[in-house]
Design a protein around this nucleic acid. Structure first.
Length: 595
DNA sequence: GCCGTTTTCGGCCCGACTGTTTTCAGTCG
């Protein structure tokens, strides 16, 4: 647990969890609430939308809920000197490998310290040392451990590293659907739902949470654990079971009778933070919440709910869309006396896709689309769109002269004009117009690889970053603002450039970007490619609050990809966006005036 | 250690499952 001046949020979260663990080892009862506070702070840091170091620079650390005066001061000391004496003195009581062992599922603070103290677990390779000890049957001899726990540790050691990663939404959806089909084969199952992060449409999914309504819980759990593709059953009881699939995905199932299924839906949808906040809110009304229903203070009787809506109404709250259940103010806004939750955008509100790559050979150095313009028009009609934009990458600058580039773009314009006057009209669908656009690289110096004469041919342009991702926040912000300044440029596409699971986003001064967009009538894209989902939801929320307009584009490189609009809309909803915040919910006529 | 539409003091979500135990602690979500 090395502290240093440039600690990232992830490292800080890890540090705070280690401090919580140290307090737990020291005295769990005495430190009970301090432990909770540190764990909560760790969660908050992990989910913070800015680097803490930057917030500290601006004296805003305590604005993060869960970080107060003390932790803020300790972190400040780390940013200033590279170390916190207070944290150091707490952590120094225990060897650092203790905190590493806690990464193994099933091993918490207490188990980790017992293992470290009683076995030969070194600082260098704690996991392989533990594995050796298990093979030598040393664990089963320890107090509070036995043969079973020794076996469990061995199994987890083999698989937990593979399982740590998170999965993209479409993959998790597909796995979930297969399991749902399996569960429905049992006649005892009355209803099955996808819950947890899958229902809340989080950009990546850690494990798959399912629920089933049934009057025969034991039989349904039994049926679930007989799913042919299960690699290992982690736990199995009367009310829930957890299994691991060969891919490493964990699936949790909870079952409950129809009469109280509504409260199970609420509980198992989460998020954890939403539930805690909701339960604290309920306690003030002398009500205690659980997955079984609501208890009045002092009463043992549980009031049951078949529907989730009724559960929230009983608490004097509007039903809260799952995408908003992250404890970011939704409970207060849902009060029936307040009732100011946003009316979230829906897929059916979308009237256009503003980033599509056709197979028109634009001679780009990036990737070309696979579908013809006609196929894309057909797909757009099937989605009831009124307009779409063809946004192939710009022609490569290195392989062409300026005149050649202009010629290519002229040729594309002629092709699109022809599509508009002939194909779009002849198929008589909902589609009224296709736009001639491009997705243009923002070069490292903030200039564009096209001359004005080439840009003039376009109806409007998208710009985006495809190179030099690592620049200082200051330089990157200048770079982007420079590119956005061109009058033909309307949209900043996939603004952070992140690729989920493989590439972090760029650093930008978002306040400056937002202000610029508002002042100069520029829009930020929500890219619906499940690998991007960019802008990320938390930045969408900031943008919406500031009044920045957003666009939805799928970045489709095949007509089928245009179905990914669903994921883009999910991100918009998680960012509290309403129809009015999204440009391409406007009619063709209104949109056309804007450009 | 954090926090405030009953509080700057006195609270802090709630329950399932497991293994090693003889009634529960630890871990997880």
């Amino acid at each position: 647990m090395k502290m240093h001046k440039g600690m990232t949020n992830l490292e800080i979260a890890e540090l705070l969890r280690a401090v919580a663990a140290a307090y737990e080892i020291e005295n769990k009862d005495k430190n009970k609430f301090r432990i909770i506070a540190y764990d909560k702070a760790a969660d908050a840091v992990e989910h913070a939308s800015s680097e803490l170091k930057d917030l500290w620079d601006e004296n805003k650390l305590e604005e993060i809920p869960g970080i107060g005066e003390s932790i803020s001061n300790y972190l400040g000391e780390i940013f200033k000197t590279g170390n916190s004496k207070h944290f150091e003195s707490i952590l120094n009581d225990y060897p650092p490998q203790v905190f590493e062992l806690m990464a193994i599922p099933g091993i918490g603070a207490k188990s980790a310290i017992k293992l470290t103290r009683n076995l030969n677990i070194g600082e260098k390779n704690p996991f392989s040392d533990l594995e050796k000890a298990a093979h030598n049957k040393e664990i089963e001899k320890l107090q509070d451990f036995g043969k079973e726990s020794q076996e469990d540790i061995l199994k987890e050691l083999k698989s937990f590293k593979k399982r740590k990663k998170r999965y993209l939404l479409p993959y998790a959806d597909e796995v979930a659907e297969e399991l749902i089909a399996w569960l429905k084969e049992s006649k005892l199952v009355k209803r099955v739902d996808k819950l947890g992060s899958l229902r809340r449409k989080v950009s990546t999914i850690g494990d798959i949470d399912l629920s089933a309504a049934t009057e025969n819980p034991n039989e349904v759990i039994e049926h679930f654990t007989k799913y042919p593709k299960i690699q290992r059953i982690i736990e199995k009881g009367d009310r829930k079971a957890s299994v691991i699939l060969p891919s490493g995905v964990q699936v949790d199932l909870r079952v409950q009778p129809v009469s109280s299924y509504g409260s199970l839906l609420q509980h198992f949808t989460g998020s954890k933070h939403h539930n805690i906040a909701l339960r604290e809110y309920a306690l003030k009304k002398n009500l205690s919440l659980s997955e079984y229903g609501i208890k009045k203070k002092g009463s043992r009787k549980i009031i049951k709910f078949e529907n989730e809506e009724d559960f929230y109404i009983y608490l004097d709250l509007q039903w809260i869309p799952p995408e908003l259940r992250e404890d970011t103010g939704e409970i207060d806004r849902a009060r029936l006396s307040n009732k100011t939750l946003p009316k979230l955008i829906e897929l059916k509100n979308v009237r256009a896709d503003l980033q599509i790559h056709s197979d028109f050979d634009i001679e780009t150095s990036h990737d070309l689309g696979l579908s013809s313009m006609e196929d894309i028009v057909d797909k757009a009609n099937s989605l009831r769109y009124e307009y779409v934009a063809f946004t192939e990458h710009n022609p490569s600058k290195s392989k062409h002269s300026e005149n050649e580039i202009i010629n290519i773009i002229e040729k594309k314009k002629e092709t699109i004009d022809h599509i508009n006057t002939s194909y779009v009209k002849s198929v008589k669908g909902s589609l009224k117009h296709v736009y001639n656009s491009l997705e243009i690289d923002i070069l490292p110096d903030g200039s564009l690889p096209l001359k004005d004469q080439a840009l003039e041919i376009l109806d409007f342009a998208l710009v985006s970053i495809h190179s030099s991702f690592k620049m200082s926040k200051l330089d990157m912000t200048k770079r982007v603002l420079n590119a956005l300044s061109h009058p033909k440029v309307k949209i900043f596409a996939h603004p952070t450039g992140r690729k989920l699971g493989s590439r972090e986003g760029i650093e930008l001064d978002w306040d400056k970007i937002f202000d610029f967009c508002i002042k100069n009538d520029k829009w930020l894209e929500i890219n619906g490619d499940p690998m991007r989902l960019d802008l990320p939801d938390y930045l969408v929320k900031d943008a919406v609050e500031k009044g920045v307009y957003l666009t939805l584009g799928t970045d489709a490189h095949h007509a089928d990809h245009m179905d990914n609009m669903f994921y883009g809309v999910s991100v918009a909803r998680r960012g509290w966006a309403e129809k009015r915040n999204i440009i391409n919910t406007k009619s063709f006529e209104d949109f056309n005036k804007l450009i």
